[in-house]
Design a protein around this nucleic acid. Structure first.
Lengths: 177, 177
DNA sequence: TGCAACTGATTGCAAAATGCAATTGGATTG
DNA sequence: CAATCCAATTGCATTTTGCAATCAGTTGCA
């Protein structure tokens, strides 16, 4: 894929992974939105990613070791994408990025709910969320007691409706234009 | 400049600021390398940025409110670039990015020294460093007692020699090729 | 005074990345 | 058996990137 290696600096190498306009968006939707399928990522993308870009980035993220792909047993054509540990440990970066954006950029209030929650919960919440992701994506044993509200539920509750409405609007605009 | 606004999501908006291969590299060199002039950024860039890209990104970062430019009183042509508070508060993101890169990417040991120091020092060290940056770039009063070693000094000590050697090599390769 | 070196850029141009629209071949649903 | 859904792929125009060369003004030095 991309074996630039302009330098061995950690920040530079991280940038060679995320220094584009889509990779981190896809990971955001998988991590926080719980998207696992191509169509989910395509149709519920707030930013309206194109299918060829999505296909390219999924391939790239797999090559980089951030995602894995498996057949969905319920549907022979469906592929299910999973986060690797490498991707799951991006949660703190996402949280910091969200916190910074909330302060300095013209964010929409309704879309900042997740960032706010992550910021308030701090590292302990991030850790719990990462455990949940390990459970969902890597089959690791869950450390959350059954019945207790998951971070995922908290993150989704207020957010999902907004995202789906927005994505709906976006599709509507596209089809009628 | 770039008024995409694909969505008001904090992570997306942050990505619209840093979602390219150079902006954060320039900020890294200003924050951690202490670069303040065009030529410094150009000649001591580990990754070998081109002058037109550098000029473009400096302009863009100014438009976005991350940098300011002032005349250098010692030299009528020299411009001196300063970090704004908006840029200074990127330190935690840089630290997280460096920490993540150190774990998951093929970083060079000698270039990871800074990331390691930031990781070990944790948020308190980041805060001290940010204060130093405010002192240097915004003229804020210094909270470090005079004589005490600054974070900047610790960060640079082991690093600067490496960077300058590398940059030297890079220039050498370019001129002889 | 004259000239080389240095200042922060700008220009021209080729290559690569991006993104939209349409389409593909196979699977599933009704 | 037709319509729909699946994960992509293709074609193509636009945009971005990045290298090389160049620029005009400033400075340092002889």
């Amino acid at each position: 894929m991309n074996i630039d290696r302009r330098s061995g600096c950690p920040i530079n190498l991280s940038l060679e992974v995320f220094g584009d306009r889509w990779s981190l968006i896809i990971l955001r939707d998988m991590i926080f939105g719980g998207r696992r399928h191509f169509r989910e990522l395509l149709n519920f993308s707030l930013e309206g990613i194109a299918s060829n870009i999505l296909a390219d980035r999924l391939k790239r993220l797999m090559a980089l070791g951030l995602l894995t792909k498996a057949d969905d047993p319920s549907h022979k054509q469906k592929a299910i994408y999973s986060l690797t540990e490498m991707a799951i440990t991006l949660v703190p970066i996402m949280a910091q990025l969200g916190a910074w954006g909330r302060v300095w950029l013209p964010v929409t209030e309704e879309l900042s709910i997740r960032a706010e929650l992550l910021e308030k919960g701090g590292p302990p919440l991030w850790e719990q969320f990462m455990d949940e992701l390990r459970h969902e994506h890597l089959g690791a044993p869950s450390r959350t007691p059954p019945g207790a509200p998951t971070v995922r539920q908290q993150l989704r509750a207020a957010y999902e409706a907004v995202v789906e409405r927005k994505a709906e609007e976006l599709r509507h605009i596209k089809t009628e234009a």
